[in-house]
């Protein structure tokens, strides 16, 4: 590998650090690749995901990490962050990388199935489980469908208010979301 004089590998790391999602005190540039994150990472234990390796790629400016399949094996337990001796946060970095992948439109197969969550904001005004997951959940949790269909009654019995939002409010939410381009993004993800 030849390293060109104009090539500044830290540009990529700086881009990650300046992302909105990055914590202000993230110790990315202090990483010495000790591997403590990987040694405690359940994702690393069960797949080829390697948080240290991911941070290494970021520090070397290897943007190919964005399209690496393995970054989708992190499940956000944050153990890597809690053990890191220099306050780095591979989990957060992972989220930022995934965000970039989504922006690039190369992650639809990973996140497309979750687009239904976004739809719910547009249709009922709040975040809700997409219908496509209902049957699967009912298999895992006994009586879930029953609970779901009677939720309003149960809430009333418990003296809690309705979770249904008025049409007027839903309209308002829709206007807002459309203004910020939310619906377009959801449609993009479904492609």
């Amino acid at each position: 590998m030849s390293v060109q004089i104009e090539n500044n590998p830290l540009k990529f790391a700086r881009k990650i650090l300046s992302d909105l999602r990055a914590s202000e005190d993230m110790g990315l540039l202090k990483c010495v690749q000790c591997g403590m994150c990987t040694s405690t990472c359940p994702g690393a234990k069960n797949s080829d995901y390697n948080p240290r390796g991911m941070v290494e790629k970021v520090l070397e400016g290897e943007e190919s990490i964005i399209s690496d399949e393995e970054i989708w094996n992190c499940f956000y337990c944050y153990t890597c962050h809690s053990v890191c001796p220099v306050g780095n946060n591979p989990c957060e970095i992972n989220q930022i990388l995934r965000g970039i992948a989504i922006d690039k439109g190369i992650a639809n197969d990973k996140v497309g199935s979750f687009a239904g969550y976004g739809d719910s904001f547009l249709t009922i005004g709040i975040g809700a489980m997409p219908k496509s997951f209902f049957m699967e959940l009912n298999e895992d949790i006994e009586g879930w469908l029953d609970f779901k269909s009677k939720l309003e009654e149960i809430r009333e019995e418990l003296g809690l208010g309705s979770i249904t939002i008025s049409n007027e409010s839903i309209e308002e939410i829709n206007t807002l979301l459309k203004k910020v381009g939310f619906n377009k993004r959801i449609e993009e993800l479904k492609k």
Partner: peptide
């Protein structure tokens, strides 16, 4: 001992 051999990139 859980450790990553960082030179071999192996857990």
């Amino acid at each position: 001992v859980n450790v990553e051999n960082t030179l071999k990139k192996e857990f």
